[in-house]
């Protein structure tokens, strides 16, 4: 799908983005395996090199910058595995992306039910 009109705050994971994101997503896909998660924790830089992440992707990972990871082609499905490795919930990740605390993000969710 070619994104013709922007939906603010939304990065479509389309072909070109998925091409760009492939090394990052492949690395995060490996986190389905406990040994891989440990290997990552032992030496993150070596693990980036193993999957040939681009410099943009390494930088986003080092800064734990979720938006930058998405801009570097990350898919939330695999980034979620990275979040899990860090012990973050999807509400924590929601807060990180929207500039809210986790509690503020949760309150934001609740508010949308009050319609």
């Amino acid at each position: 799908m070619t994104q013709t009109v922007d939906i603010p705050g939304t990065i479509m994971l389309d072909g070109p983005m998925a091409t760009k994101g492939y090394p990052l997503n492949k690395m995060c896909y490996s986190f389905n395996n406990a040994a891989a998660r440990n290997e990552f924790k032992q030496d993150e830089e070596a693990y980036y090199e193993k999957f040939k992440l681009t410099e943009e992707q390494r930088d986003a990972m080092r800064k734990r910058d979720v938006i930058a990871m998405l801009e570097a082609g990350g898919s939330i499905y695999y980034l979620a595995k990275f979040a899990g490795l860090l012990g973050l919930s999807v509400q924590d990740v929601g807060g990180l992306q929207t500039g809210m605390t986790t509690e503020e993000f949760k309150a934001f969710l609740v508010k949308q039910g009050e319609i």
Partner: peptide, 13 residues
């Protein structure tokens, strides 16, 4: 990859 994705998009559509 550019033409490939274009074809893939068009086919799924």
């Amino acid at each position: 990859s550019d033409l490939s994705w274009h074809i893939a998009n068009s086919l799924v559509e």
